[in-house]
């Protein structure tokens, strides 16, 4: 099934607010094995100058993938989720995601292309607080495997 190249360049409206919680940060840090107490101990975090516990460097993917779902779940995009493999991921942190942040994501479809029988889609999610402070840029490339693989 071909991926719809017309989606390249599309920008989605900002998502609903995602509220970053200390509980989710702890759960995520435990799942990736990040032992830095800055994820779980607000006093440690404040001593280092943060407002509250902060998320591990890849936590933003949780919010970014919710933004990506706008594209992936759109039947017109032609993306078969069962054939999706993650190709690349990048984060640029303007500051750490912090418990208490109220964040919205704006999804940009930067590229849609075919390569070697597979389709590749690059998306970029700009995460910012509700008040417009840039927090993180998350860029992802997914590969939709062709039928013959």
């Amino acid at each position: 099934m071909p991926v719809n190249a017309d989606f390249q360049g599309r920008v989605y409206p900002p998502t609903e607010t995602y509220r970053v919680s200390a509980a989710k940060i702890r759960e995520f840090a435990e799942a990736v094995g990040s032992s830095d107490p800055v994820h779980v101990d607000a006093e440690v975090a404040r001593a280092r100058g943060y407002a509250d516990v902060i998320a591990p460097p890849t936590f933003a993917v949780l919010i970014a993938q919710q933004c990506d779902a706008q594209l992936i779940s759109d039947p017109e995009a032609g993306i078969d989720f069962s054939r999706v493999v993650h190709g690349e991921q990048r984060f640029t942190h303007h500051r750490p995601l912090t418990a208490g942040d109220a964040v919205v994501g704006t999804l940009h479809v930067d590229a849609v292309r075919e390569a070697g029988g597979h389709a590749m889609v690059t998306t970029r999610t700009e995460l910012a607080t509700e008040t417009g402070e840039a927090v993180c840029t998350a860029t992802s490339t997914i590969v939709i495997r062709g039928d013959e693989s």
Binding site: V38, P56, F91
Partner: peptide, 26 residues
């Protein structure tokens, strides 16, 4: 894999909040 691998860096740096960029290919 990406998230667990970077603990090598955050433990060495001493603060997970100091990672300002991180990118990989799978």
């Amino acid at each position: 894999t990406m998230g667990s691998a970077v603990t090598l860096v955050t433990d060495w740096v001493g603060d997970a909040g100091r990672v300002v960029e991180y990118g990989v290919r799978f």
